[in-house]
Design a protein around this nucleic acid. Structure first.
Length: 739
DNA sequence: TGACAACCTG
DNA sequence: CAGGTTGTCA
């Protein structure tokens, strides 16, 4: 089937080598080539059109794209966390803690109740915290400020949590196992060769299939995936170990508590004169002394959750103890701790709170450190910023071919949840192009942005201390409240394009001006990042111009079918990683290429604009550019020819194009405005030939024929010369213009 | 009829 | 330079 279609395409390509309006349809030919190449390339690529494959289809040729992939993978994992999180506000810490608690509860029956209680309660608290980050950290952290849940509720919550966790893991695994299924459905690509007779829907599907990954990319992608798996494993292992340590410490603390309590209890039993209050006071005092006397190391290393559990267990035991109920009845104070242990307890409560906060902060710091440190040092490793041509992201038109916002939203909910990260990590533009840059760039940019506008990772602890959610909320728009796992918070700062500046933009992203602004900023950022990336496609030497909206208008004109929803999505998280649209630098590059080729094939364009994620729109856009170039070129030629005739020139011999002639200057001004590129001699020759063709035709009076230019076009289209290899480099402008 | 280049217009 | 139209070809 593929062969057949390839053959068909080839023949079509040959046959399409027709001259339209007198000109060989090179583009059509190229188009055929492109089709064939696409069929070949994409047949080896992941044929899965499911949304879940988006992340993997994203794997690209450039390392930047690779890092993008990694980020996406990470985000995906986090997104799953998010999506599956039964209680949106749950952080990974709480997840892990809960995990351990449950485990602990299973092995220690006496502690189970408190563990479960803590779980349910904690979830509740987190929910509250997530729903309103205005809650003070203390409130969120204090387990005593919430009513204890019934055993039934706890069991139910625990069960739900476990199920959700399982589902999450399954989802992640499923997602990971999707990508390798390359070439299994290569046949689908065959249909790409079928030129006509397909409904818009079909073409939409076709588009989805078209953007597949080449096999090489697939392989590298698999490597990436495995690398990432490895990384994840390591991450998990470390966390697990960490948690086990904390668990251990907690157990020690528990034992101490038990000892204290038991001894107190026995003392109490022995001495019946001791009132319950005094007993409690004794316990509290002991605990206070214990806590205070304890070295910081011990207390601060405690798992706060378990610490809380234990404390709650003690309270509960007190509550359950006969005689306690009566006394507690009259105490409606919000803080049961204060109620139970009246006078002396205040100090203890304060101490405990403080220590809890400290311990929690430490845990948060540790976890955040783990998560935040990884991307920094691992991304570059896994995805070295090498320049890889043919960067094309399937995410583009492929899997994000969603025609409805709902679908897209769903997609986000599943894979690329528009979490706050994206909110300020990506540019919130409704019509933004997604993935505008290769990832390496992103990585670099990331660190750069970090130092520039984003608070350093170390400072995040501060906000995290207060409340992870509140910290996150401070970055996201007020209208946007999306709970996300704590680890995600680390990303915004490593987010390559997630310049903190976007956080500010986010606030008024609703206004059209702000949209434009953000778009502009995006382009700017793109260029800036380009500046930092030596391998970057676009030259930083050229400041953004008013033409920055190119990609946008392009989308508007060419992507009416919303072939690529990712282009249109306001939350296009990928908008930051790939060069989806064509930038002014691409235009400049195209213009320079025009000096070599007037009729570039789409295949050629694809090759020479490897940093652009090609889709139908991009191809059309580039073709249109060259069409416009030709238009100007021929107009100038005709004009100059007529002018020459008017000037009395009678022989083509008198017509020559030099670097100081008027025609040349006009052309140079148009295609090489900055005059920073040395126009090849060959172009002068071609221009001269063209001019003489026009001259002769006009002299011969052929211009009376409406299609008299056809013959000229036919000649000129054969005069294309090879475009220098350097143009294949995404950052050729830099290289070219610095020569 | 789809695709494409030229052409026209703003 | 982009949007739209027209003419040609397969």
């Amino acid at each position: 089937m593929p062969d057949h279609d390839s053959t068909a395409l080839l023949s079509r390509q040959t046959k399409r080598r027709r001259v339209d309006i007198g000109v060989k349809r090179t583009v059509g030919t190229a188009s055929a080539f492109f089709e064939k190449a696409r069929a070949t390339f994409f047949s080896a690529m992941n044929p899965q059109g499911s949304d879940h494959d988006v992340e993997y289809s994203v794997v690209q040729h450039t390392d930047g794209e690779k890092s993008n992939v990694l980020r996406k993978l990470l985000k995906r994992a986090n997104s799953y966390e998010d999506a599956m999180m039964p209680f949106p506000g749950a952080t990974i810490i709480s997840q892990l803690l809960k995990n351990n608690m449950n485990k602990n509860g299973g092995t220690e029956p006496s502690f189970q109740a408190s563990g479960l209680s803590s779980t349910g309660s904690e979830i509740h608290q987190e929910d509250v915290c997530s729903n309103s980050s205005r809650d003070s950290p203390q409130e969120c952290l204090s387990p005593f400020s919430r009513p204890t849940m019934s055993q039934f509720d706890m069991d139910r919550l625990c069960d739900e949590h476990l199920r959700a966790k399982r589902a999450r893991v399954e989802n992640i695994i499923r997602g990971m196992s999707h990508s390798p299924n390359v070439a299994l459905r290569g046949n689908e690509n065959d249909r790409d060769g079928v030129p006509c007779s397909m409904s818009p829907r079909d073409s939409y599907r076709e588009n989805k299939r078209k953007q597949k990954l080449p096999q090489q990319q697939q392989q590298s992608f698999q490597q990436l995936v495995s690398a990432r798996k490895e990384q994840k494993r390591e991450e998990r292992r470390q966390l697990k170990q960490q948690l086990e340590d904390m668990q251990k410490q907690l157990r020690q603390l528990q034992e101490k508590f038990y000892q204290i309590y038991d001894s107190t209890d026995s003392e109490n039993n022995e001495d019946g004169n001791l009132s319950e209050d005094s007993m409690r006071s004794e316990i509290i005092d002991r605990r206070a002394r214990d806590s205070v006397g304890r070295s910081d190391n011990e207390m601060f290393d405690l798992d706060p959750g378990q610490f809380i559990n234990r404390a709650r267990a003690l309270v509960r035991e007190h509550e359950l103890a006969p005689g306690n109920h009566r006394k507690r009845e009259g105490m409606k104070d919000k803080n049961p701790f204060h109620n139970i242990f009246h006078p002396e307890s205040k100090h203890l409560a304060e101490t405990l709170k403080q220590e809890l906060n400290t311990a929690m902060s430490q845990v948060v710091d540790t976890v955040v450190k783990v998560f935040s440190a990884k991307p920094i040092r691992q991304l570059p490793q896994v995805f070295p910023p090498l320049q890889i041509p043919q960067a094309r992201f399937a995410i583009n038109g492929e899997n994000h071919n969603f025609h409805t916002t709902n679908h897209h939203a769903q997609c986000f909910g599943d894979v690329i949840i528009p979490n706050p990260l994206d909110t300020f990590g990506s540019i919130p533009m409704p019509n933004s192009t997604d993935q505008t840059e290769a990832l390496p760039l992103v990585v670099r940019k990331n660190s750069n942005d970090q130092s520039v506008s984003g608070p350093p990772p170390g400072n995040h602890h501060v906000s995290l201390h207060q409340s992870p959610l509140s910290a996150a909320a401070s970055f996201s728009s007020s209208s946007f409240r999306h709970p996300f796992p704590l680890p995600l918070m680390a990303y915004p700062f490593q987010n390559p394009l997630g310049a903190p500046s976007s956080a500010f933009q986010a606030k008024d992203r609703a206004s059209p001006e702000s949209l434009d602004l953000t778009r502009e900023t995006t382009s700017l950022r793109t260029k800036m990042s380009t500046h930092h990336m030596s391998h970057h496609p676009c030259s930083p030497a050229h400041p953004p111009s008013s033409t920055d909206g190119l990609s946008l208008s392009f989308i508007k004109s060419e992507c009416g079918d919303m072939q690529d929803m990712s282009d249109i999505s306001p939350y296009s998280g990928s908008a930051f990683y790939m060069q989806e649209g064509l930038s002014p630098n691409h235009l400049k590059k195209a213009k320079l290429m025009f000096f070599y080729t007037r009729y570039p094939s789409s295949n050629m364009l694809k090759t020479y604009f490897s940093d652009v994620k090609f889709n139908r729109c991009i191809t059309s856009q580039l073709i249109k550019w060259f069409s416009n170039f030709r238009e100007f070129y021929y107009i100038q030629m005709e004009k100059y020819a007529r002018q020459s005739i008017n000037d009395g020139v009678t022989s083509t011999e008198e017509l020559s194009i030099t670097r100081d002639c008027e025609l040349y200057r006009a052309l140079n001004m148009h295609y090489n405005k900055a005059n920073d590129f040395e126009v090849p001699e060959r172009f002068l020759e071609v221009a001269q030939i063209t001019l003489r063709e026009f001259f002769n035709a006009i002299i011969a009076g052929k211009d009376v024929d409406p299609s008299w230019k056809k013959a000229i076009y036919k000649v000129i289209c054969k005069l294309d010369s090879e475009v220098p290899e350097i143009f294949r480099s995404p950052n050729c402008l830099q290289e070219l213009l610095h020569e």
